Simulated assay, not measured.
Amino acid sequence: MDTTEEWLDAASIDPSVGALRPDYRALLIVAEGLRPGPGDAFSEELLAEAEAKACDPEQHPHVAAWREAFRAFGAKPKRTRPSVDALLRRAPEGLPRVDRLTDIYNAVSVAHVVPLGGEDLDHYVGPLRLTRAEGTEPFALMSGGEPVTENPRAGEVIWRDDEGVTCRRWNWRQCVRTRLTTGTTRAVFILDALEAMDDTALEAAGRALTEALRTSSPGATTASRLLRAA
Results as ranks from 00 to 15, higher is better:
E195Y: 00
T181I: 09
V63L: 04
P138D: 07
Q174I: 01
E49R: 15
T184Y: 05
L130C: 09
S216Q: 07
R169K: 15
P77F: 00
T136S: 12
S109F: 05
S109A: 15
C55I: 15
F139K: 03
P138W: 02
T210W: 05
D9E: 09
L88R: 11
S216N: 07
F189C: 07
L130H: 10
L116A: 13
L141K: 04
P115Y: 05
T166I: 15
L130P: 13
L47C: 09
D122I: 05
A75H: 10
A196K: 13
L130V: 12
G144M: 02
K76Q: 08
L130S: 11
A193H: 15
P147K: 09
L20W: 15
T166G: 05
A208D: 10
P218Y: 04
A64W: 09
A220W: 11
E119G: 12
T215H: 12
W170L: 13
E211G: 10
R186T: 05
R132P: 08
W66A: 07
D99R: 02
P96N: 00
P36E: 03
A204H: 04
G164M: 03
T3K: 00
P22W: 02
E45G: 06
E203M: 05
L47P: 02
A91I: 03
S143Q: 14
C55W: 10
I158R: 09
T184N: 06
F70P: 05
S16T: 15
G74Y: 04
G117T: 11
V84W: 08
D161F: 01
P82Y: 08
T149K: 03
E146L: 08
